[in-house]
């Protein structure tokens, strides 16, 4: 068996008549952090939504290990172990922190002991959530909500964790905490596909990266390579 967790081959996704993804190919190996960077509207979220089954590709294939998962509905893709932490957190606002985390473990219903253990792990990573465990999700701050959204993802015991813009709208201090956690999760063995606008942060933690431009992959390479690529520096890191 190869150690490629996810392979996306020549995927095309449409919104009505508009072709949002024009033949994307990428792969994620076991134990990697791979990042997908690009401008607004480049198709980063569309790529994640296509992998997770929220959108269905018109052509191309998506494989988890050796199993084709493209075309499956979202809850079945989740059941296979591909777990997406969506853009904008999307926590359940009228549920408590604990209930939100339990929802993350929705498919592990026969594994009460394992769920408890995972919850302990989430509380270790984010002690703030433990303090607020009985508080409603909607009353948390933006940073806490992002922690909760990530915690919910961890609760699913993913084979591949996909994070969509985890730094969006957060204070720099909080962004740092989030990225530290991403690295920590990865060191503990979680394979991560990370979509980010904050290219500098993303490339500094990622093993490899892809640069998306209007629905196609423009560049790919090691994280450090891309970080020092002139074109990337100009376009995404704001250097002139």
């Amino acid at each position: 068996m190869s150690n490629t967790v996810l392979s996306v081959e020549n995927v095309h996704t449409f919104y009505g008549q508009i072709e949002a993804l024009k033949g994307i190919s990428l792969y994620v190996d076991s134990g990697e952090i791979v990042t997908l960077i690009g401008a607004n509207g480049a198709g980063k979220s569309t790529t994640l939504n296509t992998i997770s089954g929220l959108l269905s590709p018109k052509a191309g294939s998506i494989k988890l290990f050796d199993e084709v998962i493209s075309g499956l509905p979202v809850h079945k893709v989740t059941a296979k172990g591909v777990v997406q932490v969506p853009e904008g957190r999307r926590i359940f606002p009228r549920m408590t922190v604990e209930e939100n985390l339990n929802m993350g473990a929705f498919l592990r219903n026969k594994d009460a002991a394992g769920i408890k253990e995972s919850m302990g792990r989430v509380f270790d990573l984010f002690p703030r959530l433990k303090e607020r465990r009985t508080q409603k999700g909607g009353t948390l701050s933006g940073g806490e909500q992002q922690m909760l959204a990530m915690g919910r993802g961890i609760m699913a015991k993913p084979k591949l964790l996909m994070l969509d813009e985890p730094s969006m709208g957060l204070a720099p201090v909080v962004v740092e905490t989030i990225f530290e956690t991403i690295e920590k999760l990865n060191q503990e063995g979680t394979t991560i596909l990370l979509v980010e606008q904050n290219a500098a942060m993303a490339l500094s933690v990622a093993h490899r990266g892809y640069v998306l431009e209007v629905g196609s992959i423009a560049l790919e390479g090691l994280g450090t390579e891309l970080l020092h690529n002139e074109q990337v520096r100009k376009t995404y890191l704001g250097e002139s």
Binding site: V74, T78, Q84, P86, F92, P93, G104, F106, L107, A156
Partner: peptide
């Protein structure tokens, strides 16, 4: 509360 997010949880 959020149908799409619930789908992402496997519901």
């Amino acid at each position: 509360q959020d149908g799409e997010a619930a789908g992402l949880m496997g519901v």
